[in-house]
């Protein structure tokens, strides 16, 4: 085989490979770094984070505004401390409420931010005080059963 046809084939091969890489990068994946610009860090403490994971989305009004970067146990307060980065374009008031929510019934868990009415905005490094823990299905079910049982006891008394 002459050198030029060989070069041509190799060129085609490399071009195909690079095209595949581009396809994977642009069509198949989304770049998590790029949708969050000049991020700043906030944290929040929860009694229970349920199944929240690092890299879980942080959403406000359903819009992605950041991602969870770290989850650790705070041995002083006996709580979970969730550190997350928020897009620098978005500011949240100091009385923002942080919830751990689930997308759909069995979907992944994410951190939801509900802004309050305060004028002052949270500064980088601040800790959100008002939090609501994850809904734990077992607790929910036992509560439900308990109520049912209670209802059942009341019924015959009527």
């Amino acid at each position: 085989m002459s050198r030029t046809t060989l070069d041509l084939w190799v060129g085609v091969f490399v071009a195909m490979g690079i095209a595949a890489l581009l396809f994977l990068a642009l069509k198949v994946a989304s770049i998590s770094g790029s949708d969050i610009r000049s991020p700043y860090t906030l944290s929040a403490r929860f009694d229970n984070i349920g199944g929240l994971k690092v890299r879980a989305p942080v959403k406000s009004a359903g819009v992605l505004v950041g991602r969870v970067t770290e989850i650790r146990y705070d041995n002083e307060h006996f709580q979970a401390e969730v550190v997350f980065s928020v897009d620098g374009r978005y500011k949240f008031p100091t009385d923002t409420f942080a919830n751990i929510l689930t997308s759909g019934l069995l979907g992944e868990q994410y951190l939801g931010l509900d802004p309050g009415g305060e004028e002052k905005a949270l500064a980088p490094g601040d800790v959100i005080k008002k939090t609501q823990s994850a809904v734990v299905l077992e607790k929910l079910i036992s509560q439900f059963m308990f109520n049912k049982a209670a209802d059942g006891e009341q019924a015959p008394a009527k």
Partner: peptide, 9 residues
């Protein structure tokens, strides 16, 4: 697919 697949990871 795009929502779940992360470029870096």
């Amino acid at each position: 697919m795009r929502a779940a697949v992360d470029f870096r990871y």
